[in-house]
């Protein structure tokens, strides 16, 4: 699948998910191949980051976050479904100030915890064009993500020069996209 189709699939899936169309989201999720899963996780991570930063800023207040985590626990935990609310909280902290946490939450669980958080933040009345705008931001941010957002503050201070902002290369002219 070429990159454009892949992104279209990821977008369609996220859109269905944001609209609460569970059956459609599941149908689209089934089309995401094993080979695309890591890519998809990064897409979701970037989408998640947009929501988190929009809602909580780059330095979430720990007490507020703890109250949020308690709400998630009450909503999702049951003995049959051992939802670990702290892992959802850790995903939030991972994309704001503690990137190390991304290395400690199993990748297979990350998307589910991110969606649990997004479901709390997303406005169910988002229009299609608002979502498209959001996904455009996500694609821009995806390029930046590994270079910047995942940096730890303590590592940043040891750098003398901040990295140049990532720029997507313009499409070469004369080639049919």
């Amino acid at each position: 699948m070429d990159p454009a189709n892949q992104t279209a699939l990821f977008r369609a899936h996220a859109m269905a998910r944001l609209r609460g169309e569970a059956a459609e989201a599941a149908r689209l999720a089934a089309q995401i191949s094993v080979e695309q899963r890591m890519s998809h996780l990064l897409f979701t991570l970037t989408l998640f980051t947009q929501f988190v930063v929009e809602e909580l800023g780059y330095e979430p207040d720990p007490a507020e976050l703890a109250a949020f985590t308690k709400r998630l626990h009450d909503k999702h935990y049951s003995p049959e479904r051992p939802f670990e609310a702290l892992r959802a909280e850790a995903m939030v902290r991972a994309v704001t100030s503690e990137s190390v946490l991304l290395t400690e939450i199993p990748h297979t669980e990350q998307a589910a915890y991110m969606w649990a958080v997004i479901d709390e933040f997303a406005d169910p009345k988002l229009t299609e064009s608002e979502m498209d705008e959001l996904f455009d931001l996500v694609e821009e941010a995806r390029e930046d993500l590994l270079g910047k957002a995942l940096d730890s503050p303590t590592l940043k201070s040891s750098k003398t020069q901040p990295a140049a902002p990532a720029q997507s290369a313009p499409a070469p002219e004369g080639i049919d996209a």
């Binding site: 703890a66 985590t69 935990y77 051992p82 939802f83 702290l86 400690e104 939450i105």
Partner: peptide
């Protein structure tokens, strides 16, 4: 070590018992 579990049980001792519940 499972550091997030350590955080969960530590906070659980200080008023957030729900964090250790799923473990």
């Amino acid at each position: 070590p499972d550091h997030l579990a350590v955080e969960a049980v530590t906070r659980a001792l200080y008023g957030e018992p729900h964090l250790a519940e799923p473990l």
